[in-house]
Amino acid sequence: METSRREFLRQLSLACGSVLFIPACAGYDSPWRFFSEKEARTVIAFAEQIIPADKDPGATDANVVNFIDKQLIGPYTRFQEDYRKGITAIENSAQKIFQKTFYELDWKNQTGFMEQMEAGKLPEEFWAEVNQRNFFNRLLDHSMQGFYGSPRHGGNKNYVSYKMMRLDYPHVLGQNRYESKCATAKILEL
């Protein structure tokens, strides 16, 4: 029997017995566990600014948003409310300053916006319930965890950060197999 996503989420929230925030306005079409599609786009844009793609993959490639989304219904359930309100405040601030959503801003404006947020200088009116500097630091920290932590938690896809930092993986000394064409490496990739 097929269980609907709505039913699944309802049961999950009952099972957790906690304040699982179901995105009321987002409907249930979002491909994410916690985020609405728009919220996820904001987080993706934000995390990409934190760890931008250059000659090595960035936060988007590493699926950092998936890491955060996954933790928000797990160990980070306690940050749900903070995320929901914080992302809304980011959106409202961007609308007020640029009349655009944050993720649609060009790169430079996004950077400038985030520098303001880091310094606590975004319009106060939207940040009554969430401290903008605290929320900035939380997003920064969680993005770093998603990019540099173990892939098993939903980020660091294909070990991109370990490759970038030239860390052996699997952890067998002197056996850095990322670029190796040997048979063992092929087996590992399978």
Partner: peptide
């Protein structure tokens, strides 16, 4: 890797291209 992302000299960038370059080249 994650702990290293917090190890920076005073005044260094905490995020963005410079932070990533530091992570890549200084680890």
């Amino acid at each position: 890797p994650y702990l290293f992302s917090k190890m920076r000299p005073p005044g260094a960038k905490r995020w963005g291209p410079e932070h990533k370059e530091y992570q890549r080249s200084q680890f």
